[in-house]
């Protein structure tokens, strides 16, 4: 099966052109979230909420490692995932899962208590990753929005206009990443705006600005992609072979993300889809099928009258 280009009906592509901005068009910006330097502090979550006055959304202890915000939604526009795994991270020695060394002579297993249980555990690593709206090149949420509330900005980002949204909820089901959601008591759809107001004024998005380790890097998308490629090489060179980029490829099913990631495991491990495709890629075919079905309905109904009259 050949992947068709996700673009095709006037998507912004790399330059973000074709959205009618003319001179107002700006260079496309994005996020490179490098999860390999994330300390899981959640400053991004809080900074986002403070800046955007996103409501606090409840006290649920999940027992999912240190993640109590669970996932992206109307009230969580940055979400930090915590993944505990019995696997190694490059040449790190996590200590808690490493079997007792064989070379120095294992203490005899007959000793009472010689066996702690950790022997069973093998390796360990703790992955943390801050997720956010991808600001897809081909954004399903934006495509399906019937009001024009969702629109593509002059920066190539995808933003909900809260004065327009009527809460139809279509975008929620269209987003292949589970990002945008409707807020219960407000009725409108909400998600990351890539701090549209801030970047319009030359400021950095709040989450990226707060990030203590620069895990979230904001900037010109092309530069970020170059930096990410170099970073990937460095990590592979250093033995972190599980590193991979996610969402940076303009050839993928959504035409690449303006917010892309360096992950240390498969995307689904962090709750992201491994190979998302913008649903509207199949829309022409859907319309064709629908047209055919409509015709069939018409013809079929006519046929029902074609029989003998009674």
């Amino acid at each position: 099966m050949v992947v068709r280009s996700a673009r095709g009906h006037g998507d912004p592509g790399e330059s973000g052109t074709g959205q009618g901005y003319g001179d107002e068009q700006r260079e496309r910006v994005g996020f490179f979230t490098d999860t390999s330097v994330c300390i899981g502090c959640k400053a991004c979550e809080v900074a986002c909420k403070e800046w955007n006055s996103v409501p606090e959304d409840g006290l649920d202890f999940t027992a999912m490692s240190f993640d109590n915000s669970v996932g992206l939604g109307a009230d969580t526009w940055r979400h930090v995932a915590f993944v505990e795994q019995r696997r190694p991270l490059g040449h790190q020695d996590a200590g808690v899962g490493r079997p007792a060394p064989v070379d120095l002579g294992m203490p005899s297993t007959e000793l009472p208590g010689a066996y702690t249980g950790v022997e069973e555990r093998e390796e360990f690593r703790w992955l943390m990753a801050s997720d956010v709206c991808k600001h897809c090149t081909s954004a399903a949420c934006l495509d399906v929005c019937p009001t024009g509330s969702l629109f593509r900005t002059e920066f190539g980002t995808v933003v909900v206009q809260q004065d327009i949204c009527n809460g139809c909820g279509y975008c929620v089901s269209a987003c292949p990443y589970g990002v945008i959601d409707r807020r219960e008591d407000d009725g409108r759809a909400w998600k990351c705006t890539m701090c549209y107001d801030r970047i319009g004024d030359g400021m950095e998005p709040a989450c990226a600005k707060a990030c203590p380790t620069d895990s979230i890097q904001f900037g010109n998308l092309d530069e970020l992609r170059e930096r990410a490629a170099r970073r990937l090489e460095d990590l592979h060179g250093a033995g972190v072979s599980s590193a991979r980029l996610y969402g940076e490829d303009p050839g993928d099913g959504v035409g690449g993300n303006a917010a892309f990631f360096l992950l240390l495991d498969e995307p689904e491990v962090y709750g992201m889809p491994p190979d998302p495709v913008v649903t509207t890629r199949d829309l022409p075919s859907m319309w064709a099928h629908a047209g055919l079905a409509a015709a069939a309905l018409l013809v079929g109904s006519a046929a029902a009258f074609a029989g003998r009259r009674r």
Binding site: R87, P88, L89, G90, A229, L232, H236, G239, V240, S241, S242, A243, R244, L245, Y246, G247, E248, D249, D252, L263, L264, D265, E266, P267, P274, D275
Partner: peptide, 10 residues
Amino acid sequence: GRAGSGGAGG
């Protein structure tokens, strides 16, 4: 290096 190419864990 893209995720899509199915890079295996370390």
